[in-house]
Amino acid sequence: MMVSGAGAVFVRELKQAWSGGGGVSLPLGFFAGACSLTPLSLGPEADLLRAAGPGVLWIALALSSLLPMERLFQADLEDGTLDAYAGSGVALEWVAAAKTAAHWVSTGLPLALIAPVLWIMLQGPVSSMFQVALVSSIGSAAFFFFGAIGAALTAGVRRGGLLITLVALPLYCPAMIFGSAALYGAASGGDWTSPLMLTSAAALFAIACSPFAAASALRAAID
């Protein structure tokens, strides 16, 4: 019952994401745009971009992950879908987990897939494209699940987007540190697996905690 209910929420969210005109592509556009503006402000020297590229890519990925968060729970809260979920017998923890997972699949994974392209534009070595996609997909999971806590806390706040940033960014720190360390390792041919494992630890921690914190906040918003 619980798991099938969560599965239904997951499928519904995916369908909505892929049918609802442009919702998925906006963070992708932001991600690409932020990375493309960097050479305009830093200057196009290849050495400088090679040195700053991994860090720029990673902060752009983190900010792009925040973009879809404002509507993650707010839309469902406003039109009453969350009330229906709450009355359906499926625990809100499952609902929060399923919604966040669906958003990560529909937005986070595409972000990770275009990351190698932006990586090359920022003069990263082509040979580490695979590592970049892997690190980005795991890191974006950490960003999405930590961001979901902020999204749930601010679901009842009109124009809570900036508030999400303030609430979620402190939680982003571990993934921020270890994810960019993995990218720098991949760029220099150095050790990238141990920071990747720490990034994965941050992602797993986020996945384990986020549904409970988010559900607790959503219950307050529904009351």
């Binding site: 806590i149 806390l153 601010t154 009842g156 706040v157 809570g160 508030l163 303030l166 609430v167 960014l169 402190p170 939680l171 905690c209 914190a213 607790s216 906040a217 219950r219 307050a220 918003a221 009351d223």
Partner: peptide, 30 residues
Amino acid sequence: FIYLGYIALWQAMDTPQKASRAAAVLCLVG
């Protein structure tokens, strides 16, 4: 920054009941 987020969350909510739950969750996470 977590302090600032906590204070901002209290100020952003319409009713004290909602704000208190949300702020408490944020505080425990922080």
